[in-house]
């Protein structure tokens, strides 16, 4: 059954091969990024390249998620292609609820200096009441959207603590964004939150010039 993986694993002896397979399974199936101290194949260039190539067979890539931490995610070009397939895109209500969680749990704390710049993981929960008020979705629809987002690992529920009411934070899938995907998400939030801001203007200008470049490249090809 391993004809797809075999060419990539063939070069390793038995022990190395098992390490590569373990690292592949770990970055693909662990809830959180895994430390390279526990997975030998992630520490050295040759086996790590093999893991990367195995991921590439299904359009995925290694994502560095902090010092000595690794996970996997979709390659940017593959994510772009999948996003064009309506079947692969979550329904609008789920996207709306997710956007609200990102605004409350990430964008607002980041603007207040409570969260570092390049992360989409946050300890600041968005309260259910806030979601109910802002989405104006019937409670049944909101709960169904929250259930599916939780199941997909896109949000996680935080139980009420001593000084907060609990709620929802971005889920473990946000570790899996590539650097480019994190940047695009950041830009989208700026465009949504302050469309008239100078920063939003700069983002639009940069995108226009990139589009122009691509058109010209295609024209020359």
């Amino acid at each position: 059954m391993d004809e797809v993986f075999e060419p990539l694993l063939r070069e390793f002896d038995e022990r190395r091969r098992a390490e590569v397979v373990a690292a592949y399974m770990a970055v693909e199936h662990a809830a959180e990024p895994v430390p390279e101290v526990r997975f030998a194949a992630l520490r050295e260039p040759a086996p790590r390249r093999a893991v990367e190539e195995m991921l590439g067979l299904s359009g995925r890539t290694l994502v560095k998620a902090g010092r000595d931490l690794w996970t996997s995610g979709f390659r940017d070009d593959v994510a772009a292609e999948l996003a064009r397939d309506p079947e692969c895109v979550p329904p609008v209500r789920e996207r709306a609820v997710l956007a609200l969680v990102l605004i409350h749990s990430v964008a607002i704390p980041r603007a207040a200096g409570l969260l570092e710049d390049d992360t989409w993981v946050s300890p600041h929960p968005t309260p259910l009441d806030e979601l109910r008020r802002r989405t104006r979705l019937p409670i049944g629809d909101l709960e169904a959207a929250l259930r599916r987002l939780r199941m997909a690992g896109l949000i996680a529920q935080v139980k009420a603590g001593a000084d907060d009411a609990g709620g929802f934070v971005p889920g473990p899938q946000f570790h899996r964004l590539t650097p480019d995907a994190r940047r695009r998400l950041q830009e989208e939030l700026i465009l949504a939150a302050g469309p008239e801001s100078p920063l939003a203007g700069a983002i639009r200008a940069r995108r226009r010039s990139r589009e122009r470049e691509q058109r010209e490249q295609r024209g020359n090809a």
Partner: peptide, 14 residues
């Protein structure tokens, strides 16, 4: 997702 609209720009990769 919001990402989808953005990414459409670099559709030249096969």
């Amino acid at each position: 997702m919001a990402v989808a609209r953005l990414v459409r720009e670099d559709g030249s990769v096969s």
